[in-house]
Amino acid sequence: MLPHRSRVAVLVFLLPPLLLYGVAVLLPILQSLGLSLFRWDGITPMEFVGLDNYVRMLGRDDVFWQAFANTLGYLAICLVLQLGGALVVASLLVALRRGRELIKTLYLLPAVISTVAIAFLFRQIYSLDPVGLLNQALDMVGLDGLQQAWLSNVSTVLVAVSVPEGWRFTGLYMLIIYAALMAVPAELEEAARLDGASRWQVFTKIRFPYIRPVWVTTAIMATTYALRGFDIPYLLTNGGPGQASELVTTYMYKSAFSHTDYGYASAISVFIVVECLVAVGLIIALLRRKENA
């Protein structure tokens, strides 16, 4: 602590950041909570409707529930690709002797590319006419029967818009998990090997439990990022065809800026926050319970 600290100095340093943060983050959160109790199109006078927006959202709106189910699917695919994929690659990388730095760099590369560029890229990958990369690859391995327009087929579109998001950030999680795996003490693993443990046992009994704290962090990061995922589905399909790839976030955006239903959109955005908080709570509770067992 500084000896000569003064109340004025604290305020001088603290007020500007608090001001920006208040205007950009705190005030809008409060405003959203308030707006969610009104019906308002931005032009006519606001009308107080109490909890009606929430009742409508949870009780009467099928599109909302469809969007929520899609969001869970989107989340599941992102988690499998990002955390599952990252764990596999990180484990392989730890065993490698050369080229680790190069591979880390290359693997992270998609994370620096904008979502708009990624949407362009994947539109071409999924394209049927002209034949895109995916359909061409299916043709080359003799699965040409599976060729289709992945983004216009109701049963494939959700997976198709989820994969780019998973692909984009898997490198980030790979790095974090890799750094954690490198910190597992080599003596622990060697002792287990001498006792006759197989590779698989070393992995499940030693490495995996050892990196559990990092597992919690990455699970929280990946889950909350996936729940707020918006850009790629919005750009690739805008929720279509029908509502087949509508997420809660894209539905909220449409309610706000296409239907100018500000009150209802605010209620949905409050739901997105609650969703994230519940997810974080669940992850912490689940992984802590395991620790005690």
Partner: peptide, 19 residues
């Protein structure tokens, strides 16, 4: 207070900021 901003998704701010 600052921790809130790490967890909260940006979507919550879109409508209020627009207004």
């Amino acid at each position: 207070l600052f921790l809130i901003g790490i967890i909260v998704p940006v979507q919550i701010a879109l409508v209020p900021l627009f207004i």
